[in-house]
Design a protein around this nucleic acid. Structure first.
Length: 365
DNA sequence: GACGCGTGGTT
DNA sequence: TAACCAAGCGT
């Protein structure tokens, strides 16, 4: 910490800001959330961009803003439609928190996104990064917005060897950003650091020879840019054997289940599925039959194994065996019968979209 | 502070 | 190809 302070003593802050911001204004990408300074759109973009690539976000952002162009529109939208607009983006608690926070802004702040750190931080899903991003980008307030890019860029510029995977390390970078941030144009400054991280100061093989601020870069001067940032490794995801069954009745309706409101894939819809116990003698098919009977009072003819789907999460891997079941009774109300047309209103995890495709292929033949 | 929480692209 | 990565937050 004191080490960083020492480095900043001799740092040409004003020149650095100028060179970085000039580069940014020439080279910045033309992204849909950069068309205006609407705090609501900045907010939506920042939530979508959490742990998610720009190229992935762009079409979701355009569609989302098309459907919910204002705070008011999103605040009054129904949950099912909002979740559907997030389908496939992942980390679904982001959109549940966003929806809740937007309602809060509509009701308690007259529809105006608050512009103080204290107020904006109270909103669900707005943490230290998103707080700084909205305040600086939308309101031009000099707050740090420290994300992975910022830590990577400044770890190299200032040769900071702390492990950026540790939560407390973020504070070191926030302190450095308070010192370095342009008071005249904090919006461009914060975006410029992130843009530099995305385009030039990349995780592997950074393009130092194209870097507009390499003359300020401690790591480049010492040739250690490839060693930085220091980042400890994550644990490997744990594999789970699963089985899922697409149940249909004699009206051609499919039976789907809504997941609980908290935890993994909260509030998304799915085909009935279960974890398979490896140690039992029962076949997967037999376990599925028992499961749907006990869980949903459903009687069905179950097919042979029809396909497999792998679903990789951050912390889990589902290896899903897929079956098809012909219902011979009416199951519990925890299963919703839907036509394939009605199904389109509901949000499913990607793995269950793949399961549905297996069913479609199978029912063609 | 560690862990839970998605998905698709890159090396 | 397995590992790693991408504009984090809540509990």
């Amino acid at each position: 910490m004191n080490e960083v302070k020492d480095k900043l003593e001799s740092f040409q802050i004003h020149d650095f800001q100028h060179d970085l911001i000039s580069w940014y204004k020439h080279e910045k990408r033309d992204l849909p959330w950069r068309k205006d300074q609407d705090p609501y759109k900045i907010w939506v973009s920042e939530i979508m961009l959490q742990q998610t690539r720009v190229d992935t976000v762009i079409p979701y952002f355009n569609a989302f803003i098309g459907k919910f162009p204002t705070i008011e529109a999103l605040a009054t939208a129904d949950e099912e439609e909002v979740l559907k607009a997030w389908e496939g983006l992942g980390y679904y608690s982001r959109v549940r928190n966003l929806h809740s926070a937007v309602k809060e802004v509509a009701n308690s702040y007259a529809g105006v996104v608050p512009n103080t750190p204290e107020e904006i931080s109270k909103l669900k899903g707005v943490g230290p990064y998103t707080k700084g991003a909205i305040l600086s980008i939308a309101y031009n307030i000099p707050e740090p917005a420290v994300d992975g890019n910022v830590m990577r860029v400044f770890s190299r510029i200032l040769s900071i060897w702390d492990d950026i995977a540790k939560p407390k390390t973020r504070k070191i970078f926030e302190e450095a950003t308070y010192k370095l941030i342009s008071k005249e144009d904090p919006s461009s400054f914060n975006q410029a650091v992130m843009e530099l991280g995305a385009l030039i100061c990349t995780p592997t093989s950074p393009s130092c020879l194209l870097c507009p601020v390499r003359e300020y870069c401690s790591a480049f001067a010492e040739g250690v840019q490839a060693e930085l940032p220091v980042k400890s490794k994550k644990k490997k995801p744990r594999p789970l054997q699963m089985a899922a069954v697409v149940l249909y009745d004699d009206h051609g309706r499919l039976y789907i289940h809504k997941r609980p409101g908290t935890g993994l894939l909260a509030n998304l819809w799915e085909f009935p599925n279960m974890e398979i116990k490896a140690e039992t003698k029962e076949s997967y098919r037999e376990q599925v039959k028992q499961f749907i009977k006990e869980e949903y009072q459903a009687e069905a003819e179950i097919s042979e194994l029809t396909g497999t789907v792998e679903h990789v999460f951050s912390h889990l891997i589902w290896n899903i065996s897929v079956f098809i079941g012909t219902l011979t009774n009416i199951p519990s109300e925890d299963l919703l019968p839907v036509t394939e047309e009605e199904m389109k209103k509901y949000a499913f995890p990607v793995s269950h979209q793949k399961i549905y495709k297996i069913y479609q292929e199978e029912s063609k033949s």
